[in-house]
Write a protein that binds this DNA or RNA. Structure first.
Lengths: 109, 109
DNA sequence: GTATTAGGCCTACAATGCAGACGCCGCATG
DNA sequence: CATGCGGCGTCTGCATTGTAGGCCTAATAC
């Protein structure tokens, strides 16, 4: 297990995909991120992140058939791999370990 | 409020400083990070992060007097500013919002 | 056809993460 | 007092991640 490190944004993207389940293609992912974090990223930004996650085998993707809709182009749906889940769990644990006990200091402003 | 974004590593550093209180100079910070996250970063890495946090006004620092010890050079002690605390709180909230409800999927491995 | 809309991809640059080498300063010890 | 050693700040430079913006295509609508 060669220790995969996720950047913060990559984590966010993975989480959004998980949350969306089988509706996870770029546009809804982007919307989800915006809704949850207020971060309004460009589509291009998202695609590069997704590509890099793919390179690390944290996600896989499949193309859909074209849709019978207004601009119904085929969509690329993403799924988080087990390796991706593991990596996510690891970074979460690391963050939690550091947060633990510090919250109180935050509240004091 | 011009929206300060913290990278993941910067968050970790801030948290370590908070945790160390008034013993927060580079070497213990490094040790703390290693102990909590298993991340064994070079000193240089840490200093650049600290410098950048300084530039964003998330930390301040003061030099100590030289110490009467073997290699007793002066140390640079760091303190998290209110702005730093705010930024930390914000990124934590963002992460939490996304994590919320996803933990269950992680457990299923 | 031509507009309009959804959505994938490419290019290129900025910000962050990280390491290794350098050098200072003070004690120690002969 | 000179040489060495140990603690620690600092500099330079490259690698990885983050982000924007524009281009292109496929499909319906008119």
């Amino acid at each position: 297990m060669p220790e995969i490190y996720l950047g913060e944004f990559e984590q966010i993207v993975l989480l959004a995909i998980l949350r969306l389940g089988d509706e996870a293609y770029a546009i809804p992912v982007r919307a989800e991120i915006d809704a949850r974090t207020g971060r309004d990223v460009a589509r291009g930004a998202l695609y590069t992140a997704l590509e890099r996650l793919g390179a690390k085998a944290c996600v896989t993707s499949r193309m859909s058939d074209p849709l019978p809709e207004r601009g119904g182009r085929s969509r690329r749906y993403y799924t988080v791999t087990p390796a991706g889940l593991r990596a996510l769990g690891a970074s979460r644990a690391a963050l939690l370990a550091l947060w633990n006990g510090v919250e109180s200091q935050l509240e004091r402003r």
